[in-house]
Measured scan of single mutants.
Amino acid sequence: AMEMGLACVVCRQMMVASGNQLVECQECHNLYHRDCHKPQVTDKEANDPRLVWYCARCT
Rank of each mutant, 00 (worst) to 15 (best):
D48W: 06
N20F: 05
T59S: 14
D48I: 05
Q26A: 12
C8K: 00
S18L: 07
E3Q: 07
Q13I: 06
Q13M: 06
R12M: 08
L51M: 09
A7H: 15
H29D: 03
C11H: 01
K38I: 13
D43M: 09
W53K: 06
K44A: 12
V23S: 04
M2R: 09
L31T: 14
N20H: 11
Q26M: 05
A7D: 11
M2E: 10
M4G: 10
C8P: 01
Q13A: 08
N30R: 11
Y54S: 14
R50F: 06
Q26P: 11
L22V: 12
E27K: 15
C58M: 00
V10R: 02
V41M: 07
M14N: 13
Y54N: 12
V9F: 08
K44V: 10
V23T: 05
Y54C: 14
Q21M: 15
L6W: 02
C28N: 02
V10G: 04
A17S: 12
C58Q: 01
T42C: 15
T42P: 14
A56W: 06
M15P: 15
G19N: 11
R34N: 13
C8R: 01
C8M: 00
V16M: 12
R12K: 14
P49G: 14
T59R: 12
L6H: 14
V23E: 03
C36W: 01
A46K: 14
Q21P: 09
A17T: 09
T59K: 10
H33N: 02
C8W: 00
H33E: 02
Q40F: 11
R50E: 13
E27M: 07
M14D: 15
E3I: 04
Y32N: 02
C25S: 01
E27F: 06
K44E: 14
M15E: 08
M15T: 14
R50G: 13
E24C: 04
A17I: 07
A7I: 12
R34C: 05
C25G: 01
Y32F: 12
N47R: 08
E3D: 09
C36L: 01
P49H: 06
Q21V: 09
M2P: 03
Y32S: 03
W53V: 02
G19R: 07
E45F: 05
V10Y: 04
M15N: 14
K44G: 13
A17Q: 15
Q13R: 04
K38P: 03
Y54F: 15
E24H: 04
L6T: 14
W53F: 10
Y54V: 09
V52D: 13
L6Y: 09
C58S: 00
M4F: 07
Q40M: 07
H37S: 08
T42H: 08
L6K: 15
V41T: 05
L51I: 03
Q40V: 09
L51P: 13
V41A: 04
N47S: 13
